[in-house]
């Protein structure tokens, strides 16, 4: 009986599973970001993102799980250029998860906001609810011209028309690292064992990736930095991506 009441308490409490096994987190140091776009290309290659072409790009139907937002500040000649790499924030209180009628997007035990392509029926509600606009919809079935299909990543599926997709924090790499840890009889993945494609390709090491539950990981230290902030923090989505403010010279 006590067991049942405990279960009921557990299930009726908001924030169920707020203690994750892992809490994968990314930190992006905007002071180091040069806006080179290597991460965008790496993501494209790793995750089998289709190249939509100029026409579709103009229609704002590009597929970029990671994009670099470019903001200009001030008036010429005092013009400042700022970059903001924007990818799925893997929010702990994700606005996009609740509206899916078929539970195609949910929170897994790694604290990741997952998207299950097989299950998606394409109501696009998640994308409407997402304040970061990092969900991308397959408006068409995209194909790869020969010989480009040869470079598709076998670890990642290709998606058909009518399916929503987004950054997964390279879940296939996380999966592999976890399998390796299991093979080596380790309980947990070591810090630095998982690197998503974008982090791996960042020339200036602006991006760090790791487990926030591990207090000694690089990314945990980064989040304690004074410059750390979340984008659109006021919406209380509790993102897992931490940005480090750009250091500016004030005259």
């Amino acid at each position: 009986m006590a067991k049942i009441t405990d279960k009921i308490k557990e299930y009726t409490r908001p924030g169920y599973y707020e203690k994750f096994d892992y809490h994968w987190t990314m930190s992006i140091d905007l002071d180091r970001c040069t806006g080179c776009g290597a991460c965008v290309v790496a993501c494209q290659a790793e995750n089998n993102l289709p190249i939509v072409g100029e026409k579709r790009f103009k229609e704002r139907r590009e597929m970029k799980w990671l994009r670099i937002e470019r903001y200009w500040e001030g008036e010429y000649p005092n013009l400042k250029l700022k970059f903001l790499p924007m990818l799925c924030q893997q929010c702990d209180q994700a606005p996009c998860e609740t509206p899916c009628p078929v539970a195609a997007t949910y929170h897994n035990q790694d604290g990741l906001n997952t998207q299950i392509y097989n299950r998606c029926i394409g109501t696009r509600t998640c994308a409407v609810y997402c304040p970061y606009e990092v969900r991308y919809f397959n408006w068409f079935t995209y194909t790869w011209d020969e010989p480009l299909e040869q470079q598709l990543n076998p670890d990642v599926t290709v998606r058909e028309k009518g399916v929503m997709e987004k950054c997964t924090f390279c879940v296939q790499r996380i999966r592999m690292a976890k399998d390796k840890a299991k093979d080596d009889n380790r309980r947990r993945v070591k810090d630095g064992e998982v690197t998503p494609a974008c982090v791996q390709s960042c020339a200036s090491e602006a991006m760090q990736f790791g487990d926030l539950n591990d207090p000694n990981s690089k990314v945990s230290k980064m989040t304690k930095n004074k410059r750390a902030y979340h984008v659109l923090e006021e919406l209380n989505t509790k993102p897992s991506v931490v940005y480090l403010q750009k250091v500016e010279k004030h005259d």
Partner: peptide, 24 residues
């Protein structure tokens, strides 16, 4: 987007053994 799977929104058993998300 995928009309052919729209019946997944109905609370009927399906091959994925998943049920609709009534919080939506």
């Amino acid at each position: 987007g995928r009309l052919w799977f729209v019946h997944w929104t109905a609370p009927i058993p399906n091959p994925m053994e998943l049920w609709p998300n009534f919080r939506s």
